[in-house]
Design a protein around this nucleic acid. Sequence first.
DNA 1: ACAAGGCTGGACTCCACAGTCCAGTCCGAT
DNA 2: ATCGGACTGGACTGTGGAGTCCAGCCTTGT
Lengths: 200, 200
Amino acid sequence: MTRALTAKGAATRQRIVAGTADLVRARGADQVGLDDIRAATATSKSQLFHYFPDGRAELLRAVAAHEAGEVLSDQQPFLDGLGPAGSWQAWRDAVVAKYQEQGVHCPLSALTTQLGPADPGIRVIVADLLDTWHTRIADGVRRAQAAGLADPSLEADKVASSILASIQGGVVMMQATGNIEFLKVPLDAALAVIEPPAGA
Amino acid sequence: MTRALTAKGAATRQRIVAGTADLVRARGADQVGLDDIRAATATSKSQLFHYFPDGRAELLRAVAAHEAGEVLSDQQPFLDGLGPAGSWQAWRDAVVAKYQEQGVHCPLSALTTQLGPADPGIRVIVADLLDTWHTRIADGVRRAQAAGLADPSLEADKVASSILASIQGGVVMMQATGNIEFLKVPLDAALAVIEPPAGA
DNA sequence: ACAAGGCTGGACTCCACAGTCCAGTCCGAT
DNA sequence: ATCGGACTGGACTGTGGAGTCCAGCCTTGT
């Protein structure tokens, strides 16, 4: 399936994907046409179809995969460090700061809400992302338990689901209302199970 | 702004909104064209524009308002009864059953993910819905506290945010993965704060 | 009964936008 | 140096779908 790609070609392809991702994040997938992409990435129609023979749909799948990677790599350092005292709070702060800064331009919601429903290929990407993310969090919970910092009777997978859902839900509510408290409060509540807030 | 509407006209308008809502739920907003709506509601283009002079956008706003009403009225009996022992579990079961049955055809996600982002007018509707829903839950928490069934030191508003986010996030994750556990588990965890599971 | 005006049908216009095509240019291997 | 194939530009086509128009029907009030 992979065709011969020179370094130059790979760079162009990458530029298209990244540029399209920016547009999708900013406006939503259905507000982004091939002409917008052309303009934003300094390319021509023929280039778009050269790199993505199946057209717009294939390009959007590539964008989805790209964004899914971004979501994870953004948090990679925090996720790997999850476990020790304070690590959960640090991650929480990073997540909140990230969403506070991006506001409505969120790769995650672009994936789940704009791209996902339409294309089954993209749903798979989203499902994989959630699964990986979930696994990383659950691993962190187990590390905390092994270190004696968290109640060993907790079921790590369930705790991870709960934390992850609080993020997803918090983001949805934040997007709709513009109030970041709807992210902070549920996330804090979900995390309290494993690492009670410092002030308690 | 309201024009004269005879009983017949009101019925037609209502038929259009309800029929469009069905289509949007089934396929997603961007997969529903005016011709689909015509076919599904046995109407003509001119009727569509007669009742919704601003066209598709205005119709979709009406659909959003309609669906928001449905979400609340579906749960009305449970929300009003929130407080007493067992009432939370009953509500939880109803919510889970509802989503299990609808699967991916969910008015709520249609609102938040399909319609919401594009149109600011719809975002307001969604924000109102979330706000009302949040208030109802918080009231239930306070009733439980007043009855001595829940820890009086809990902040009702925060607990309500946490519960609501677990539903939103659970639904998002369920949609993406097809696994309803991602709704059940976080919702149970959020509710455990106020009414510990029967088996505990 | 007979206006007045809400209600309905459906053909028509208009355009945004995905996708095609071909004539070129650049690069890398022999 | 030259040949093949990757790469690029941009004009062109075709179509789906939103919105327009107007002629005719039905209801309601007087």
